[in-house]
Write a protein that binds this DNA or RNA. Sequence first.
DNA 1: AAGTAATCGAGACGGTACGTCCGGTCTTCCT
DNA 2: AGGAAGACCGGACGTACCGTCTCGATTACTT
Lengths: 209, 209, 209, 209
Amino acid sequence: MYTAFMNNSWEIASGSASPASRLGRPRSERARLAILDAAADLLIEGGLGAATMEAIAARAGVSKVTIYKWWPTRGAVAVDAYFHRSEPTNTIEETGDLARDLTNQLAKMIDAFAGRPGVVMAELIGQAQTDPNLAETLRSRWLKPRRDEAAAVLQRSIDRGEIRPDVDIPALMDQLFAPIYYRLTMQHEPLDEKLARTLVRTLLDGVRL
Amino acid sequence: MYTAFMNNSWEIASGSASPASRLGRPRSERARLAILDAAADLLIEGGLGAATMEAIAARAGVSKVTIYKWWPTRGAVAVDAYFHRSEPTNTIEETGDLARDLTNQLAKMIDAFAGRPGVVMAELIGQAQTDPNLAETLRSRWLKPRRDEAAAVLQRSIDRGEIRPDVDIPALMDQLFAPIYYRLTMQHEPLDEKLARTLVRTLLDGVRL
Amino acid sequence: MYTAFMNNSWEIASGSASPASRLGRPRSERARLAILDAAADLLIEGGLGAATMEAIAARAGVSKVTIYKWWPTRGAVAVDAYFHRSEPTNTIEETGDLARDLTNQLAKMIDAFAGRPGVVMAELIGQAQTDPNLAETLRSRWLKPRRDEAAAVLQRSIDRGEIRPDVDIPALMDQLFAPIYYRLTMQHEPLDEKLARTLVRTLLDGVRL
Amino acid sequence: MYTAFMNNSWEIASGSASPASRLGRPRSERARLAILDAAADLLIEGGLGAATMEAIAARAGVSKVTIYKWWPTRGAVAVDAYFHRSEPTNTIEETGDLARDLTNQLAKMIDAFAGRPGVVMAELIGQAQTDPNLAETLRSRWLKPRRDEAAAVLQRSIDRGEIRPDVDIPALMDQLFAPIYYRLTMQHEPLDEKLARTLVRTLLDGVRL
DNA sequence: AAGTAATCGAGACGGTACGTCCGGTCTTCCT
DNA sequence: AGGAAGACCGGACGTACCGTCTCGATTACTT
């Protein structure tokens, strides 16, 4: 688990780090940012294939060892770089209208996957198939927050008595989110915002006459 | 497009081979099978990472050039090897009970993804993110046949007047199949046959009270 | 020994070939010439390195097997091709003036080694270091005729009483010819016709005061 | 020019190494020697053909990249390995007797070319026909020192008034040394020490009655 | 005319080595 | 102790030729 690395900023920010960490030369924040920026640039320009450890090190003006010191695999640097650039946009305002709120969240995600960032996310997911650390990071830092948020919206709707109380919430989440990732990775159908409305409507009302 | 390579058996079987193809030493069927078997074995044993061109060549007792002659990338060999082992099982009997038929098909797919073959498929999907040929082959040889079959089942149900005639069939297909691939690749929830029933039920009836 | 192959033209010309050779399809003279021409062209254009069996076959419009049928190594084809283009020029007129006759022969050889043919000969000699067949062919078809001719000139001079009768003729031949090959292959000094005069003069008169 | 590589030991020995060269991990002397030893062994055992980059790397327990880092071609490694084993023996004592001194030097060279080392040298010369770097190295590190030494001996003899002062010294050098290389590479006559005496005698006194 | 035999083109094949790339690890000195 | 520089081993890559091997087609001579 290298999620610890993600918390570095936090550890550094907090003044009361463990006494052991106060020995020797402190970690260079300059190097950390240079690495993340270099990796992010490479990801955007040439995808995951271009973001080799060597290329990142060269571009960041940093030695390879420094990268390995803080991130175990190239996938780890890549996710961090991805979030370094695009994390902020993940909260959503809730109106109380279930269909509208869910549609909004899906549309926001579809929008975030347009263009290069979508390609990069697809490649990260691809890489995660052979990199368990990367998979775990994607789950905990990307998927879970979004699922939790939607699940909360749904739960509140259940509480309001709009939804059958016996539903399988994780399965519902999948029926909402999975098609987006599926189209992102398989490219068999276009990934546009119309999809958001269709998914929510079918989920709520079904297709049976 | 290397899908042409997949059709070799078909092309050869059909009597109308191009006259040019009768010149020179014919392709060695022995080598073709040895390659596919070696690749399939390696995939099962060690995943896509183990199915190196060199390893396949060594195990098949074949030269690397012979592989490159017929498949452009290791992904290409891998899909062919995957299908070489597992293609037959894809048709489904139709009973006329929509829910039952769809559930059966999903359950069959979930079953096919249990164990090593599921891991391999996940890795193939992962690899497809950086290998457009592989992506295209997966779409045309794996996804499409299954989607087409389910779509036909759904269409007949529409014709029988059981389903709203204005539904977005591709989106429905995604709401059925995508969660399976999503759980296969992201591993955030278990992929078991209970999921099949839940997906179909929600799709047909919705969750609204 | 593939010197037999060199005699092919002779064998073909002579009507009374061995009875065994009269069975089956006769050797294609067209292919033989196409091969030699292709090889010679490649030698001139890109040296021995360019005259691969595959390149020769492709350029001659001939299958590789046909070449291997008649020549065992690429060196063999190369010498034959070299002679195919440049053999005629090797006889010399004798005037009876020893110094003049020897100088003429050396000068002629130096001239033959100017430009690309010299480079090709150097490469053939180079290749002969690891190809015994090629070495033997060079000795018997190139070196020996020239040495024999010069040796005969020298012998007649001995008979005329101009030269010490106890000389080591092979060593004399080497002291005349070797410097030319040495400069051709080592390139440490220019290979020009002035060298011919110097070599002959020193050989005849020595350098002692 | 990779002769620079040959001088590494010298450059390192000299105290004035460039400041840049003190950065990073220093070159591994262990690897350098392992490579040269492995190459020399392979040369002796199987000639230049056996001294592939892969074989050298495997035998030296070194990666191919490390070899390519310091030597551009296999010829380059081969010469270095050759000299690594046999360089020391090249100086000669001078007695003041011209014939004797020259004969001694030639005999020493003939002796050095007996057995496997002679074969290897012949192959190096052969390879040099298509490898300009190798050719240059042979000239500067092998031929030139020996020619310079003999030329100095000759010059002193001229100074003593024993030899015609107008002689073409390079041509004389060739008439002495070339026959040895010629017999080494063409194998048309035996290369024994008797040749040394014959060459010197003819050079000094000529053959004219 | 049918049969026999060798040749030829095309091109697939196993094999060896090539020169390169990247991953991870290491060693050195500098800060 | 952290970091930049960079050398190092290992493994795989994709390519070039080699020499061998099928094929089917052609071209003679022999019955």
